[in-house]
Computed example of a mutant assay.
Amino acid sequence: MTNGLPAMDGPGPSVDPDRLRRDVEFLAGEPRSRRRSPRAMERAEAYVHDQLLRAGWRVERQPFDLRWRLGSTDRHGHRALALKPRLHHRLRGANLIATRPGAVDGPTVLVGAHLDSVSGSPGADDNASGVAVVLETARLLSALPVPPPVTLAVFDMEELGLIGARHAAGELNRRHRVRGMICLESVGYFTDEPGTQRLPAGFARAFPEAAAATRANGYRGDFTLVVHRRSSAAAAEVWRRAAAAASPALPGLLLRDPRPDGPAGLLIGLAVPPVNHLGRSDHAPFWNRRIPALMLTDTANFRNPHYHRPTDEPQTLDFERLAAVTAATVTTAVSWPGD
């Protein structure tokens, strides 16, 4: 047992798929974006803030006002590019950071997901699914008598180039040492149909073992991809084993990004597009600051035909498997391997 939760070989914490569904249905009622649909974004932010408070967490809204930031476009469209550069003159947004009252002030494990969606898409999978896991994590951890060293984050402006996470990575590490980070990026779409899982161009050459495992599985989109680096390899294995304990229907496919943590890894990714796909979400700014991190994903546009489209709606998600994702995430957060 770890902080009252099952260890990685146990059955996993009890997660309510109906709560996950309700969270996703509320958040994915319409597109939400600080720039393109600010009222919807404000409603979504207020909902997340309220749910975290109800779960007994202390919530801090951390606004930011940034000028001349290189990012990307949040226009809708099914095709995702590793780089969609755009220079933003001014960006004003806010992250939500939640901590448990009574938690020890020290190194923390961060569990985070982005709240915004692209224009024209309600973003059920991308990324109401990830935020729903954060909210359910808050509820489960609130039941522990001793608050574990876990911090929760809901990031703004991921679709504009990881803007909120880039800001938060620096702010959080100045206040507390972040010893590990779990990023939930599009985690709710699964299918058992053969031939539904696609691979990026050049992926098989860069990652032959993962490509072979996908091929042997009939290219079924029935797994969660656990992207990690050497610094977070042990945490990735914790997550995989916890997912297997939570549900036999949720295999975890581990994929190691060969790049080093720090700025050198970022520069290598610019030169090797198949590798750069592994840094397309809010874990990347933490890697760039040499913080061990995982990205959990259903692989987004490489599986989900509704990615960045108006059809990315709650009824397309698998909430039973999303519950297993949550259970494995909670177990990993409270039993993150030592430094």
Results as ranks from 00 to 15, higher is better:
D116M: 09
N127S: 07
A213D: 15
Q197L: 14
L162D: 05
V146W: 11
G164H: 06
N217W: 10
P101M: 02
H176R: 15
T196P: 00
A132F: 09
L135S: 13
Q197M: 10
V131L: 00
L140Y: 00
G112Y: 10
P107H: 13
L96V: 05
V187W: 03
A165T: 09
R179K: 10
D126H: 15
G130T: 01
P208H: 01
A132S: 14
Y219T: 01
L144S: 14
G106R: 11
T214D: 03
S186N: 15
L140D: 00
R220L: 08
G188Q: 07
A201Y: 09
G218P: 01
S186W: 06
Y189E: 01
F190R: 02
V133K: 04
T108M: 12
E158Y: 12
G170A: 05
I163A: 03
Q197D: 00
G164K: 06
A212R: 15
V109N: 11
R166N: 10
P200R: 00
L141H: 12
P148A: 07
A138N: 10
N217M: 13
A153V: 01
V109R: 14
A169D: 00
G93Q: 07
L135I: 12
R205S: 11
V104N: 13
E193H: 06
R175G: 04
I97P: 13
I163G: 03
D125Y: 08
R177W: 13
T191N: 09
E136R: 03
L199P: 01
H167S: 10
D105H: 15
L199W: 01
V154C: 12
E159G: 11
L91E: 01
V133W: 05
R100V: 05
Y219A: 09
L162M: 13
T108I: 09
Q197A: 11
R92F: 12
R205Q: 15
D125F: 02
G120V: 00
P149E: 09
V187D: 07
Y219M: 09
A103P: 03
G161T: 02
L115S: 02
V154Y: 11
E159F: 05
